[in-house]
Design a protein around this nucleic acid. Structure first.
Length: 275
DNA sequence: CACGAGACCTGTTCGC
DNA sequence: TGCGAACAGGTCTCGT
């Protein structure tokens, strides 16, 4: 489920708590139980348990689609990939289906990493940059300007959709929000990046921010059986609406495969240019 | 550098 | 109803 808005939603709820989820700030990690060995990217399981025991959760933030949990000595990084989730609560029995890594915390709390498809990964490192150093700019960073974004587009020949999904080019976009942003910007997903007018490129960053902010405002999107409780799925204009009328022009939404990803677009609003 | 295919995994939904 | 195929919010690696 996790693109930037979903990860941001999780980071916020772990940080400040919400209805059924307690804030984890200040909690101490008493132990960690690894239930699927590949979930832990580094270090080894024994070193992981040894190092993390006794550390306190000092702050929680998000970088791209990574959750960054700053501990008293180290940094815990979590990537949810396709089906990962984090559930905080009370008790020692793992919360939720498909638990892969369970942290026992002080105050009778636990943090449970669940992940049906087992793609998610967890790192415990001293320096987060050893994991995060290849990431591109944050789309919501106000210092990242539309002009800079447009200029970076001009230097690339790739199709715009795979380029937006490239985390080294721009960090945090996933399949849903990319399709939605391109539709809002009226750009065909197969358009070559360097074929976009600088004006279009600048406008594209604006629509990216629009859909991301709207996603965050609605606590992310919940679709299929990987449920999170967000409501952004009700705002989809194209994603998973193949054959349904475009809400702008009535033309049936089309689906094609670009970069091995299902891609949804309006063939009338998003006219192919230089494809 | 760009691009495609294959891996990594499991669960749900679709088509016959 | 049953069964295989297709599909799923992500990313890595390898070959061309």
């Amino acid at each position: 489920m996790p693109e930037l808005p979903e990860v941001e939603t999780i980071a916020r709820s772990l940080r400040v708590g919400n209805g059924d989820s307690p804030s984890l700030i200040g909690a101490q990690i008493l132990d960690a139980k690894l239930l699927w060995h590949k979930t832990l990217a580094t270090p080894s399981e024994s070193e992981f348990r040894h190092r993390i025991q006794g550390q306190t959760i000092e702050s929680i933030e998000r970088r791209a689609k990574y959750l960054q949990i700053n501990l008293s000595e180290d940094v815990l990084l979590i990537h949810l990939r396709m089906s990962g989730d984090l559930v905080a609560g009370e008790g020692t029995e793992p919360l939720g289906k498909y638990p892969r890594l369970v942290f026992t915390l002080s105050k009778g709390l636990q943090l449970c990493f669940t992940d049906a498809r087992k793609f998610g990964r967890v790192w415990l490192v001293e320096d987060p940059l050893t994991v995060l150093d290849k990431l591109g700019p944050e789309p919501l960073d106000p210092e990242f300007t539309p002009a800079v974004f447009a200029a970076r587009l001009q230097a690339r020949k790739r199709q715009i959709k795979p380029l937006l999904l490239d985390q080294g080019f721009l960090a945090g976009m996933g399949n849903i929000y990319t399709d939605e942003a391109l539709h809002l910007a009226k750009i065909h997903p197969a358009t070559r990046a360097d074929q976009l007018e600088p004006k279009q490129g600048a406008a594209l960053l604006a629509t990216i921010r629009t859909v991301l902010n709207e996603g965050i405002r609605r606590n992310g999107a919940s679709i299929d059986w990987v449920y999170r409780g967000g409501e952004f799925q009700n705002q989809f204009q194209v994603y998973q609406r193949t054959g349904e009328p475009c809400l702008q022009c009535g033309t049936p939404i089309a689906r094609m495969v670009i970069g091995q990803r299902g891609t949804h677009y309006c063939p009338r609003c998003q006219v192919p240019v230089g494809v």
